[in-house]
Amino acid sequence: MCAVSDDVQISVRKMDMRYRHETLLKDLNFDVHTQDVFVIMGESGCGKSTLLRHMIGLTRPRHGDIFYQGKSFWHCGPEQREEMMQHFGVMYQNGALWTSMTLVENVALPLKQFTTLTRRKIKHAVEFKLALVGLDGYGDYYPAELSGGMRKRAAIARAMALDPKILFFDEPSAGLDPINSKRLDELLLELRDNFGATIVVVTHELDSIFSIANNSIFIEPKVKSIIGRGNPKKLLETTDNPKIIEFLTRGERYE
């Protein structure tokens, strides 16, 4: 086991990741603290989403382990893993809404499966979640009838359905208009402050990164490892790595 202090929610230790037969990232070590808004940054194709897949239990790491509140996630039985996964809320990059269900049914499914709430309470909870992401009144629509951004927001509502302790978002604000993108950022902070949620976000929207993140890692595929970490604002001030500077300034800061 690894030594973790009380407020560490997730700790990744010595993790190696592979995609097919290629090692993507080696020897990853990082901690996510409770109520962090933790951002995983890096250029497209560097393995951010794959890292997320490892963290949410879809892909087994080649080596190493992930600990949730000190409990091993990959070196335990599937039942324990499923038990831990019930406390996750995940928003997939393309929404991954169930296309044969309306938005209400999509968001209600986790509530129906994992709680004993009455129908009416489920309905009200779903309406509230949809209203939070600005989709009030769209409950009876099928995902195919909505725009990409709306689908994304519905996926966020579904991820929040059970008020999970840990929320994972894969590119939440890509494809959202600036207004909804800002609303989403506000929502994430509210969820963190009020529900004590820990939030892990894969993103490369600079505005979001600077306004919500208090911790981060920066992944570099060439060295297959983490080349920067910490609060992104501080990271930008202190780092001398040209790659990180270029990323966080869109290459607009000339020195």
Binding site: L132, G134, R183, N194
Partner: peptide, 15 residues
């Protein structure tokens, strides 16, 4: 916190 979350839900765009 309750206030701000409720407000966020009410602020939703036109139905």
């Amino acid at each position: 916190g309750v206030q701000s979350l409720l407000l966020l839900a009410e602020e939703a765009p036109e139905k």
